[in-house]
Amino acid sequence: METMGTVTPISSVFPAEEAQKASRRVQDTIAERQQQLDQLKGFIDDNISVINLVQKLPDETHHNIMVPFGKAAFFPGRLIHTNEFMVLLGEGYYAERTAKQTVDILKRRGKALETQVESLKAIMQDLEAEASFFDATAQESADGLVEIREDYVEEASSRAETAGYGKPDPTFSLEKDARKFSVEDEEYNRIFSRIDELEKEEEEAEKGNESDEDERIQNEPDSNISEMSTHQEVRSSPVQVVDVAKAPEAPAVSKGDGSLHCDYPPLNRSTMSKALELPEEKKKVQAPPSTSNMAFTGSIVEHAHNIGMNMLEQQTGARSSKPVSRFKMQRK
């Protein structure tokens, strides 16, 4: 679950200054395009005024005008041939045209200019979208937004989601997580104490009814769930100590041990008879029973507060203690 997704703060991928720089660059480009657009609009205006003039000129056979002479001087003149135009087509090509034909050419030129304006406007819109995106990114980066990426797993998707909400950023909220774990510890403690109580109750009931044993064994794996078992150990050990202290049955433990030992001496004897010169081996043989004895003891201690146990009951206890010992071993 912890490795489900990755969290990357946007500021690490797109630093705020970088995003701002990018945004500024786009803004510069937009300004450039705006200039081009203004120029084109100027052309269009010029074109329209030229069209108006050309349309008006052939209305008269001649016009009295001021002819520019040099840069600053004018002299009066007269414009004749008002229906003959030399139109520059571009690339140094001129064509002799009438006013009407000229107007047609100029109108076509105006249309070309307008398509250019349209394309330029589209480009500018794109650039503006880009700029706003960069601005948004810069803003997000400055705000410390994080990107959470998780592999999509169909069955666990809902769990992943909740996990994602639960810990938005493990790197940032490690302390918080630690606190959360401690809270969880308490919860586990409560759960395990409850399980302990239930176990005890069941063990009591077990004396009357052995069939409960199976149930208990089934319960045990549940209590093994996780690493939290240490807490249970801490919790249960004082109980044991107290019980051992006040249990008059404590000797019964040794009695039980003795009965077990009774089983072993023949074995020891046989080994001795075979090889007296190997006391170490003997010890080795004895070693495994001693651990089982300890587990055995533990179980009897748990039963200690029940008065009037006979051997038969002890044996049932011994049997039931087996899962307990396994459990204890797992705890260690």
Binding site: L89, G90, E91, Y93, Y94, A95, R108
Partner: peptide, 24 residues
């Protein structure tokens, strides 16, 4: 230049045969 030339070509195509064309 390409755009300009294309424009010129279009205009030249629109001219009738006997139109006078000059080059500067």
């Amino acid at each position: 230049q390409l755009g300009e030339n294309e424009l010129v070509l279009k205009e030249l195509d629109l001219l009738n045969e006997e139109a006078n064309v000059y080059k500067l």
